[in-house]
Write a protein that binds this DNA or RNA. Sequence first.
DNA 1: TAGAAATGACCGCCGGGTAAGTTACCTCGT
DNA 2: ACGAGGTAACTTACCCGGCGGTCATTTCTA
Lengths: 207, 207
Amino acid sequence: MTSRPNAGTKGVPRAEREQEIVRVASVAFGRDGFAATGVADVARSAGISKALVYSYFGSKEGLHAACLAEAGDLLAVEIERVARDGSAGVERGVRTLAAMFTVLDGRRHVWRLLRDRSAPQDGPAAEVAGRYAARIETLAHEGVLELLGDAGITDELDVSAMVRTWLGIVDSLMDWWVAHPDQGAEEMTRRVTRLIGALVSDQARRG
Amino acid sequence: MTSRPNAGTKGVPRAEREQEIVRVASVAFGRDGFAATGVADVARSAGISKALVYSYFGSKEGLHAACLAEAGDLLAVEIERVARDGSAGVERGVRTLAAMFTVLDGRRHVWRLLRDRSAPQDGPAAEVAGRYAARIETLAHEGVLELLGDAGITDELDVSAMVRTWLGIVDSLMDWWVAHPDQGAEEMTRRVTRLIGALVSDQARRG
DNA sequence: TAGAAATGACCGCCGGGTAAGTTACCTCGT
DNA sequence: ACGAGGTAACTTACCCGGCGGTCATTTCTA
């Protein structure tokens, strides 16, 4: 190492440290929400000083934005992949969930980041969050549109309510998954399939 | 009026004022969450001073508990009524939603109170919240148990995940409803029925 | 030793909570 | 009938702790 720009570190390169901070912060933001998460706590959990966090990310919102960007990329890329595989209706929903379970295994809290109600509604971080949330919501919208269209429903309020409900279902399953760390990704997918089957059979029986 | 105990008021009896404060606070807590809601804001919205709120409710948590008690009663009573009417499975779910739409029309934010993630997890208010949440969750559990049991599923993790999902669905629909004030209660019930029908027909078509 | 990296100590603000003061109403003695 | 005094309701002005954010100083590497 002759002329590295990040001289002065205690052996840990800056990029790694940033990653570590983002990892720790994502857990905290995801678990407690933006408002209830303190920068000092994040710093302590990451084993560094609060001032260093500010030196890296500029502000709490900056840190939040970094977490969102990582989370958003992770999810959007994966969901877009599923969107391209030609499945539709409920099947597409299950596949999307399966993909999410797989990609989020080991970082289950991440989903919550993009749907945090305590996060500020404006500012640069909100813009980042909004971009990713919109991207994901667009895909949900697309899937719901197809599902409902095939059932003869085109009312856009119906579509909008169903999109919201779908996102809520994903929320719930993620929450449950976070609360049950021993459950693996494939296990979750099978569970979801099973539960949907029960719903349908109930309707078929009692219709 | 000869010997009223609440002498000295400016014409408005205390009970009414408390009700008004709880009403205003419920809106704020429901919309912004416990953490993001300031007592001063609530007081201003209610047209009184912050100190009076403390004189009535003792603390922010006390105020919160009062809101929770009202909301919890309202909902638990109604959901228990539906639980006794003999319906089961998806049908029971829809009837529960219909009852909720009806009873919450005009106070739609109330549902969120009992499921506020930013509320403190311990303390007296949390106990009140926990009691009502447990009561409602018990009913959800009961309904899900029946639904899944009829479909041959008895695994308690499946049940637990389904309960969570059901509550999440209710959450989402309430959120959507709050965002669409022009939609009436019966309209919502029809919408939900329609959407479930679409789900089932999709499964029937694609299997 | 130069200079970047990292920190501990600090500031200002905001929000929960309190105490002292003010207003309104009731009571009772004259 | 009426006003002085007492009491409860209510408000204003303040305290205090915690958190976002900053900076002078120290520590470490090249």
